[in-house]
Amino acid sequence: MARDRSPAALVGAATDDAFEITFDGRPVTALPGQSVAAALWAAGILAWRSTRVGGRPRGAFCGIGQCYDCLATVNGRPNRRACLLPARPGDAITTQEGHGHAELGV
């Protein structure tokens, strides 16, 4: 076992196929099969949404698709559960403001 313990080392995962996604324009490394939330966590990013009422930062909470706290805007589509959504090369994640539908307002 490697001295520098890591989840990937623990399960013997291959990490050679890492690819890039972006969070608010800055590059983030993701592994194949990793969810968007996991890739962001691995980069030390814990919040990618601000709440509707208080404007407070939020990220993944329940981790299994039940709490909807991890809603993210991915490639322009708002309200996607980052903990379920697999990251794909080139995905652009942007911090979601409130309901994420500002463009619909009349």
């Binding site: 623990l10 939330a37 996991a38 966590w41 990220g59 909470f61 329940c62 981790g63 299994i64």
Partner: peptide
């Protein structure tokens, strides 16, 4: 409990098991 970095215990486990990620 709403601060980023507070996560479900099962959630932390799930994110680790499925995506090899830690919240901190």
């Amino acid at each position: 409990w709403t601060l980023p970095g507070v996560v479900g215990a099962g959630g932390a486990q799930a994110m680790l098991k499925s995506a090899l990620a830690l919240p901190g």
